[in-house]
């Protein structure tokens, strides 16, 4: 297609949960600077793909390459070191640690303390609410603040590629907008993003390209403007949200 090699290249991966064939040969590419979204209904396998990229799940077939290096045999912590961070579904913040400590954990792979402090200032600028609550135990934050914290925490690793899993889940509409604004800002600052979303309407506002995943396979792949014109996509993923 265009601009040659992708930052992340997934080729024909197969993943099983026990005997259940969950992912049946998925391929996708994320290029530098893009916001790529992966949409699909519940249980289609979106989170599974992200977890395979992060190394949490093992692929049985196929390959995942990041900047030309094969990564689908590496452990999750080594993959983080290569520059891929995930904001997991359900946030998974460390609820017994303080906000600051959560951010420090995000920067676990780094040892440049001065830069870490600077980056922490940066994420506080991005999410001023977190600055107010920096000493607070993370479990006491509201759902929206926890999502901010999870995103901020992932940014602390200075990733090249940020994997976002359902950042809008369970949030009030106003907050969803804030979160998506921030994702856009993160992208503008040079981080490549792979976004998994059920709320396709929101995802389409910021994404450049999209993949539609259905029962473990890629059903469609196109630029966002083309996808939003697609009949099936409109019916299945955008229709319900127009109310």
């Amino acid at each position: 297609m265009n601009k040659g090699q992708g930052l992340l290249t997934v080729r024909d991966i197969h993943i099983y949960y026990g005997n259940i064939h969950a992912i049946k040969g998925i391929s996708l590419v994320v290029r530098k600077g893009e916001i790529v979204t992966l949409i699909g209904s519940n249980g289609a396998g979106k989170t599974t793909v992200l977890n395979a990229v992060s190394g949490v799940l093992k692929t049985r077939q196929g390959s995942i390459d990041f900047e030309g290096t094969r990564i689908n045999r590496l452990s999750p912590h080594s993959i983080v070191r290569m520059g891929i961070s995930q904001v997991p579904e359900g946030r998974k913040i460390f609820s017994r640690l303080t906000v600051t400590e959560n951010l420090e954990m995000g920067a676990f792979i780094r040892n440049d303390i001065k830069e870490i402090v600077k980056d922490m200032e940066g994420v506080f600028e991005l999410f001023p609410r977190l600055r107010e609550r920096r000493g607070q135990i993370a479990g006491t934050l509201s759902g929206g603040e926890q999502q901010m914290l999870a995103t901020a925490r992932a940014l602390m690793a200075r990733p090249q590629l940020l994997l976002l899993d359902e950042p809008s889940m369970g949030l009030a509409p106003l907050l969803v907008e804030t979160i998506f604004d921030t994702i856009q800002r993160i992208s503008e600052e040079g981080t490549t993003i792979l976004l998994v979303e059920q709320n396709a309407l929101m995802a389409f506002v910021i994404a450049t390209r999209g993949y539609v995943i259905q029962t473990g396979r890629i059903a469609l792949e196109d630029k966002i403007e083309n996808l939003s014109k697609n009949e099936m996509v409109r019916d299945l993923y955008l229709g319900g949200d127009l109310d």
Partner: peptide
């Protein structure tokens, strides 16, 4: 310490900790 905080993080959520680059 960083290691101590990582211990607490692992204690709370092993998977999330590994997504931080912590060698569980």
């Amino acid at each position: 310490t960083k290691t101590g905080k990582a211990m607490r993080a692992v204690a709370e959520d092993r998977d999330a900790a590994s997504l931080m680059g912590i060698d569980v």
